[in-house]
Amino acid sequence: MGQIRVGTSGWVYPPWRGVFYPAGLAQKRELAYLSERLDSVEINGSFYSLQRPSSYQMWAEQTPDDFVFAVKGSRFITHIKRLRDGDTLLANFLASGPLALGPKLGPILWQLPPNFSFDAQVLDAFLAHLPRTTAQAVEVAQRHDYRVDPAHTTTDADRPMRYAMEIRHDSFATPRFTELLTRHGVALVVADSAGKYPLLEEVTADFVYIRLHGHDELYVSGYTDDDLDTWAAKIRGWAESCDAYAYFDNDAKVMAPRDAIALRTRLVA
């Protein structure tokens, strides 16, 4: 059996305070509180802007030894440069602090925009440039530019790097795409998005990455007991041959932590 981890996409949400987080809990204690109930979380601030190495170090210190962070890749790479001419941007992203997570660094998520259609040549070139180990990531990070200061360009050990890709355009529903991911060992994100975006479930790597955005309404609706039972069964099936990471992104009405805890309870029971 592979290892299963369940978490939420992010943890800093004002509506969670007094609902999921106890009233009066200091904001700086929120990650620690969540990590006592779940065993992983997506860092999504890294999608919007480069974070600082000190932030990654602080997050690692606030969580248990066996906790793992998924890190969302920069939107400047996926949405602005659209995976093209991104060598310096990739170096900047890696130098901004993910390697400071040490053994708590999990998969890096690349989320493509809805208007990004399948382009095998562009995707192949981008995936081929991704470092496959933390030692290779250090070499890439050392090529960062002035935008990253201070930078973190060391690793405490040489470990494999994992990547996942989330698509949001129907043109990706082709064997050419899944074959490309398989060749590069990159996981196809299984994204439940209330029917708005494609839901593909092929296994293309040694792990499966699931994002649960809301069953009926994107980012808002929760999952029923039957829904959670269905997802738990799917994840158990995938975990027979690979690791699985599942993250809830239905945060608008504080559904994400509730559903994540409920799913994890089903999977660890």
Results as ranks from 00 to 15, higher is better:
residue 200 L to R: 09
residue 20 F to A: 09
residue 67 F to V: 10
residue 214 G to A: 08
residue 112 L to T: 01
residue 152 H to W: 14
residue 169 H to G: 02
residue 124 D to H: 13
residue 239 A to T: 06
residue 212 L to K: 10
residue 65 D to C: 05
residue 110 W to I: 08
residue 92 N to H: 04
residue 262 A to G: 03
residue 37 R to W: 03
residue 198 P to T: 06
residue 196 K to P: 01
residue 104 K to C: 07
residue 235 I to F: 01
residue 47 F to G: 02
residue 46 S to M: 12
residue 65 D to M: 09
residue 151 A to H: 09
residue 26 A to I: 00
residue 154 T to A: 14
residue 85 D to L: 09
residue 233 A to R: 14
residue 12 V to F: 14
residue 180 L to V: 06
residue 253 K to M: 03
residue 152 H to Y: 15
residue 68 V to M: 06
residue 23 A to K: 13
residue 101 L to Y: 11
residue 57 Q to V: 02
residue 241 S to N: 12
residue 78 T to Y: 06
residue 63 T to A: 13
residue 72 K to Q: 09
residue 14 P to M: 14
residue 155 T to Q: 10
residue 58 M to N: 12
residue 145 D to T: 12
residue 50 L to H: 09
residue 149 D to G: 13
residue 40 S to L: 02
residue 61 E to H: 14
residue 234 K to R: 15
residue 143 R to I: 07
residue 161 M to N: 02
residue 180 L to Y: 07
residue 136 Q to Y: 02
residue 132 R to N: 08
residue 71 V to N: 12
residue 49 S to D: 01
residue 98 P to A: 09
residue 93 F to V: 07
residue 198 P to Q: 11
residue 135 A to M: 04
residue 268 V to I: 01
residue 223 Y to F: 15
residue 53 P to L: 07
residue 108 I to E: 00
residue 210 I to D: 03
residue 2 G to W: 03
residue 1 M to K: 14
residue 267 L to S: 00
residue 19 V to G: 02
residue 247 Y to K: 06
residue 45 G to T: 10
residue 123 L to F: 11
residue 86 G to S: 15
residue 9 S to V: 11
residue 49 S to M: 05
residue 226 D to L: 03
residue 92 N to M: 04
residue 4 I to L: 12
residue 81 K to D: 09
residue 199 L to Y: 03
residue 166 E to I: 10
residue 23 A to Y: 00
residue 19 V to E: 14
residue 231 W to C: 08
residue 238 W to N: 04
residue 129 H to A: 15
residue 26 A to Y: 01
residue 100 A to F: 05
residue 23 A to P: 00
residue 232 A to G: 06
residue 180 L to M: 04
residue 67 F to L: 07
residue 10 G to W: 06
residue 170 D to T: 11
residue 160 P to M: 09
residue 209 Y to D: 02
residue 248 F to Y: 04
residue 116 F to S: 05
residue 221 S to V: 08
residue 77 I to S: 11
residue 185 G to R: 07
residue 236 R to G: 04
residue 257 P to Y: 06
residue 170 D to W: 05
residue 194 A to Y: 01
residue 83 L to G: 04
residue 45 G to A: 11
residue 166 E to C: 08
residue 21 Y to G: 02
residue 119 D to R: 15
residue 8 T to A: 12
residue 136 Q to T: 00
residue 159 R to T: 03
residue 245 Y to M: 06
residue 242 C to N: 08
residue 259 D to N: 15
residue 117 S to M: 09
residue 220 V to C: 06
residue 18 G to V: 05
residue 1 M to H: 14
residue 68 V to H: 06
residue 111 Q to N: 04
residue 101 L to V: 13
residue 229 D to C: 05
residue 142 Q to K: 15
residue 187 A to N: 01
residue 265 T to N: 11
residue 254 V to T: 15
residue 102 G to C: 05
residue 117 S to R: 08
residue 190 V to I: 09
residue 147 R to D: 12
residue 123 L to C: 13
residue 178 T to K: 05
